[in-house]
Design a protein around this nucleic acid. Sequence first.
DNA 1: TCGGTATCGCTACCATTGGTAGCGAAACTG
DNA 2: CAGTTTCGCTACCAATGGTAGCGATACCGA
Lengths: 189, 189
Amino acid sequence: MTRETTSAKPPGRPRAGIDAEVFAATLKTVHELGYAGATMDRIAAAAGVAKTTIYRRWPSKGALITDCLVDTFGPLPPMPGSRAEYLAAAIDLAATKIGQPGVGAAFAGVFVDAVSDAGLREILSTRLQAPYLRALQDALGEPEDRILLFVDITVGTLLHRMGMTGAPMVEADVAALTEMILRHFAERA
Amino acid sequence: MTRETTSAKPPGRPRAGIDAEVFAATLKTVHELGYAGATMDRIAAAAGVAKTTIYRRWPSKGALITDCLVDTFGPLPPMPGSRAEYLAAAIDLAATKIGQPGVGAAFAGVFVDAVSDAGLREILSTRLQAPYLRALQDALGEPEDRILLFVDITVGTLLHRMGMTGAPMVEADVAALTEMILRHFAERA
DNA sequence: TCGGTATCGCTACCATTGGTAGCGAAACTG
DNA sequence: CAGTTTCGCTACCAATGGTAGCGATACCGA
């Protein structure tokens, strides 16, 4: 994940493999101090890396957070037997990841920054959301607007709970949410 | 809404009635420049008021936005005939208001600021969310966790759409969302 | 009309934070 | 060793939320 696919051998000092440390430091700092409190200086310090080094790799704080989320979420699990199982797995993945320390706050933070920053919105949409939309569309064969609604409901609900209470959604509520969504999306449009 | 209930007559120069102008300027500025671009200086300028005057009434930007939202949303309409109609009316109110220029962005912005600011979370929860929770609970007679889930789904979905696309949810999707929610919440727990 | 009081607008100011420039040192290739 | 690139560091800038203090202004009561 952290290796480029360019097989050339560039001259000069090679880049140190700091992505894992920086991502971990980012989530830890956001978890402890919140999105606003997670200063680039603090993230750099927590990662044991100079701030300028971070800015050499990520053009902005939003881009760093986005890549951190991409790294955290990972790819969607492969399509299991039924449509319902696939949808349930996707909801479960979202709930699990968003509930991890720092992930929900980081997601919500970059999400809102993106509202007022077209460049960041582009990054967020391209790097984080688009792959999932495509995977869902391929697996379900549904029109795009239904996929979008599914994502809005799933992610929006989980983030809202995280933001309002500061704590991830309890399992019982995730189950209720899943049941409601499945009843609506189980059969094709 | 903007008048205190203390019926005493305090001495000194009375406060000018600027709430309406400030609220309008806030939404207009957020709409045009986004949440991050809506500087307190710019809001004050748009309202034709000094920044210090705003800070004399609202202790922080988050508090101002919250009061602006409280003013925008207003009270829930009275309970109509059926439970389903009441739920549908609440969803419709949320969708309509969040779709108004600046409201969705302002909501999302203050929402995320609240994640990392306990004081603001208190303000947001007390002044904006609590009244609606109570009204819904009184009207529906449901346990609190179900009310919370209903609000998470409704508001979270609408905000997520606003944030990701920058545009309010189209009517067809609101209708689909309403139908899904009603099927789940129509009968009591 | 005049004092008391509280607000208004204004300017100046501070601390924080995202982001940048430039430097010498380090690491790798050939 | 020369060339190249990255690293850490310090210093720095612009923007922004928020504050302090000023003279001016509007209202009340005597």
